[in-house]
Amino acid sequence: MILDTVFIEGLHTRAVIGVYEWEKEIWQDLVFDIEMEHDNRVPAMDDDLSKTLDYEAISNAIIEFCRTKQFELIETLAERLCAQLIEVFNLTTITMTLRKPGAVPAARAVGVKIRRTA
């Protein structure tokens, strides 16, 4: 099977996340890059949105997840979010880069990159 990539790059959202007590009381910036494998020939045949990965719906799901969940670790957020996206959007493979820009003042960003399959 040929699998193409549908991606979302530089998705900004905010979350309450961190291990320190002060972090549990503030909203912090997060930036996501997402790559999802998908056979794009299927939706391209009919020009049919319902047969593709709807990146707007996926983006909204990521933003909502971050606004309604609270974790100490970005590793936990990434794992749980990937699991939810795989389930809800019937993904076969997802690669997620999650950056927390303000975590280390001397660095532009720190974060994690994970790849998960269904």
Rank of each mutant, 00 (worst) to 15 (best):
G111T: 04
S59Y: 04
L91I: 01
F7S: 15
V6H: 06
D29T: 14
E79L: 14
G102Q: 00
D29A: 15
L73I: 08
D46K: 13
R116W: 01
E23Q: 04
T92L: 11
A83W: 07
E75N: 09
A103D: 01
F89G: 05
E87D: 15
S50A: 14
D47E: 08
G18Q: 04
T117M: 10
K51T: 12
I34W: 07
R116E: 03
I86S: 13
I63A: 03
K24N: 02
D29G: 12
E72Q: 15
M1V: 01
P43F: 03
R41A: 10
V19F: 09
E25S: 14
N40P: 02
F7G: 10
D47W: 04
P101I: 02
E25T: 15
L81C: 06
T92I: 09
V16T: 11
C82G: 11
P101L: 02
A107E: 14
R67P: 07
L81W: 07
I8Y: 13
E37G: 00
P105F: 04
R115N: 03
R108N: 09
A109Q: 08
L73C: 08
D46S: 15
K51P: 12
I74A: 09
L11P: 08
W27S: 14
E64Y: 08
N60A: 15
T95N: 06
G10Y: 05
A78H: 10
V88W: 01
C66N: 05
E72M: 12
